[in-house]
Write a protein that binds this DNA or RNA. Structure first.
Lengths: 155, 155
DNA sequence: GGGATATACTTGCTTCGGCAAGTAACTTAA
DNA sequence: TTAAGTTACTTGCCGAAGCAAGTATATCCC
């Protein structure tokens, strides 16, 4: 039972009413919402969100390829998780693995034409899912500030 | 390959620049952030977020107990997932299952004193995780509006 | 009252993800 | 130049969650 030692007293500062309201709404957004988006993507496109993101980041990369650890950090997954995602996408022909010429330990995940086509087929569903589950509910917010805040959260 | 038929044209309406900025930042927030919060809770408190939420909602319920499906909907998990969470928490003595007197098919998950103590031990970590990973990055936002929007997303 | 249906939960099976250990290839330093 | 260390990726093992099927109880309707 190695628990963290006592937290600094600041951690116990009570939440303001507004913060509390945000915190109360958070589980829905952080836990249920990703599952809902994933489920729609899976149902309508047979792609998980991480698979979709992989195709997307690859499509935007120079030469449509990224080294494994670059892809991992783009999709914010562990390297082992990324290995498996690439395995799946490779087995369906959407990605090819290419040896890296400059570093024999390294592989490039390279988006195939089929992979690009798959992405183009899938993105309307992804956009629809994000709109329906998320964007459409934010009408009252200042999106510019929200985007900045979310980028800030991201780091 | 049963794919959804063509989406309504509205789904293809392009994103505004602000919407796009939000969407770009979304994977970090919806996928990486929950993992980060979970990891901190697991590391420092040996509790998953769903376990923590279960204890929390039970502590707030009348008689500190809820029927399984009530708990499931509170924590927004499937019933089978809830069964397993309750199994885990029960095996550690934090929850007891009590037969429902009015309905023989039903069980109450009931928070024990040990469970309440566990919750009280864990909440500062949870609060700290939420603050550090999320709340502290929202300084620029109108939290009242954000809370309303998030509640809106939740439904 | 008793069969058909519905409800509340549990279990079996599968998938996904992380960590830690393993392997191969590169780099550094003696 | 070769042994030690580091890096890039993969594999083995595990836990968590969902769906679909199973079980037990309740309700409905004749």
């Amino acid at each position: 039972m190695t628990r963290k030692p006592t937290l600094p007293p600041d951690a116990l500062r009570p939440l303001t009413a507004d913060e509390d309201a945000v915190v109360r709404a958070l589980p829905s957004v952080l836990y249920a919402l990703p599952r809902a988006i994933d489920a729609q993507m899976q149902r309508e496109q047979q792609l998980s969100n991480t698979e979709y993101l992989s195709l997307m980041y690859l499509s935007e990369a120079p030469d449509r390829q990224l080294r494994m650890h670059e892809l991992a950090s783009a999709i914010e997954m562990s390297l082992s998780g990324t290995t498996r995602i690439v395995n799946r996408l490779e087995s369906e022909g959407f990605i090819k693995r290419l040896r890296c010429e400059r570093d024999g330990r390294s592989w490039h995940a390279s988006l195939t034409d089929a992979g690009l086509a798959r992405l183009e087929e899938a993105w309307p569903t992804n956009l629809d899912a994000i709109r329906r589950h998320f964007l459409d509910h934010l009408k009252e917010l200042d999106l510019k500030k929200l985007a900045a805040a979310l980028r800030n959260v991201a780091t």
